[in-house]
């Protein structure tokens, strides 16, 4: 696992996003065991308390679950993983639309530009 950290943003949020992405793209699968706090802290060269906080937040969002005495696992609910995927897509779209609006495009224009771009890509 390797992350290019941006020291201007909270590190725990960056690890959360990284792990969510790993789950969405299937690198970490539903029901997979995730590394321990210590393992991940050593691997990423960061403070163990930061990793602890990341895992707590992921648990709060029910993305990972702790099994007593066994460790932490990615949720086995596929619906939850779909939910993260939609959430991440939503974030991307929000940022894109905002960026386009700042450039002065109207909503109709944005839709047609996107449709065109997608078609272009389909044709190769």
């Amino acid at each position: 696992m390797s992350i290019e950290f941006d020291n201007n943003l909270p590190i725990y949020l960056q690890i959360m996003n990284y792990m969510k992405k790993q789950i969405v793209i299937g690198k970490l699968k539903a029901g997979d065991k995730i590394p321990s706090v210590r393992e991940l802290a050593v691997e990423l060269q960061i403070n163990p308390n930061t990793v602890q906080r990341t895992f707590q937040e992921l648990e709060r969002e029910q993305i990972v679950e702790t099994r007593r005495g066994l460790g932490r696992y990615v949720t086995s609910e596929e619906a939850k993983i779909m939910e993260i995927k939609k959430e991440m897509a939503g974030d991307l779209i929000d940022r894109f639309i905002q960026g386009m609006q700042e450039l002065g495009f109207q909503n109709d224009d944005i839709v047609s530009i996107v449709a065109e771009a997608v078609n272009d890509e389909d044709r190769g």
């Binding site: 201007n8 943003l9 590190i11």
Partner: peptide
């Protein structure tokens, strides 16, 4: 440190 990053969007170095 996470408070510095979250509140100011700043690294500790900055």
């Amino acid at each position: 440190v996470e408070t510095i990053r979250a509140n100011n969007g700043q690294s500790v170095d900055e």
